[in-house]
Amino acid sequence: MQPDNNNNNNKAPQILNASSNFLGFCFLVLTSIKLFKFGAVTIIDEVTAVSFVLFMCSCLCAFLSIRSRTKRAELYEAIAEYTFLAGLFSIFFMTILFVLEIIH
């Protein structure tokens, strides 16, 4: 396997892969919330929805970065990276809320 000489898109495929996996995780959490009927008493479903939107935006921008042949590829990759990071923080917050709700 040859090294990638194009430095513009070195993170976008990994961001796309991880973001799509976290989208599945968000679906699992939303389904669990509805199944256990936590949605009426917590804000976990709203935080999960925010995470879902952030990861969807990250997926879209990472894909556009991979497919773009212009200088915009760097911009798309940066947006994908920052929205992915924001999604990770929201997942962290959601996990803390979920754990506190189960303990309580």
Rank of each mutant, 00 (worst) to 15 (best):
M1P: 05
Q2R: 09
Q2W: 03
P3F: 06
P3Q: 04
P3E: 04
D4A: 10
D4K: 11
N5F: 08
N6Y: 03
N7S: 15
N7F: 14
N7E: 12
N8I: 09
N8K: 12
N9L: 01
N10Y: 09
N10T: 15
A12H: 02
A12S: 11
P13A: 01
I15P: 00
N17C: 08
A18L: 13
A18S: 15
A18E: 13
S19G: 07
S19Q: 03
N21D: 12
N21W: 11
F22D: 03
L23D: 04
G24N: 13
G24D: 10
F27C: 11
L28I: 10
L28T: 14
V29N: 05
V29L: 11
V29M: 15
V29R: 05
V29W: 02
T31K: 13
T31G: 14
S32Q: 15
S32I: 07
I33Q: 03
F36W: 11
K37A: 13
F38I: 11
A40Y: 15
A40C: 14
A40V: 12
V41F: 12
V41W: 10
V41A: 15
T42I: 06
I43S: 13
D45R: 04
D45N: 12
D45P: 02
E46C: 02
T48M: 11
T48N: 09
V50F: 07
S51A: 13
F52A: 03
V53F: 07
V53D: 10
F55W: 04
F55D: 02
C57A: 15
S58F: 01
C59Y: 00
L60M: 11
L60N: 11
C61K: 10
A62D: 02
F63D: 08
L64V: 00
L64Y: 06
I66V: 07
I66T: 01
R67V: 09
R67F: 03
S68V: 01
S68G: 03
S68F: 01
T70G: 00
K71G: 09
K71L: 09
R72Y: 15
R72S: 14
E74V: 12
L75W: 03
Y76A: 04
E77T: 07
E77C: 12
I79Y: 04
A80L: 02
E81N: 10
E81W: 08
E81L: 09
E81D: 09
T83Q: 01
F84P: 02
F84N: 04
L85M: 08
L85A: 15
A86M: 06
G87D: 00
G87H: 01
L88R: 05
F89H: 11
I91E: 01
F92N: 07
M94R: 03
M94T: 04
L97V: 02
F98I: 04
V99A: 08
L100A: 01
E101D: 02
H104R: 13
H104N: 11
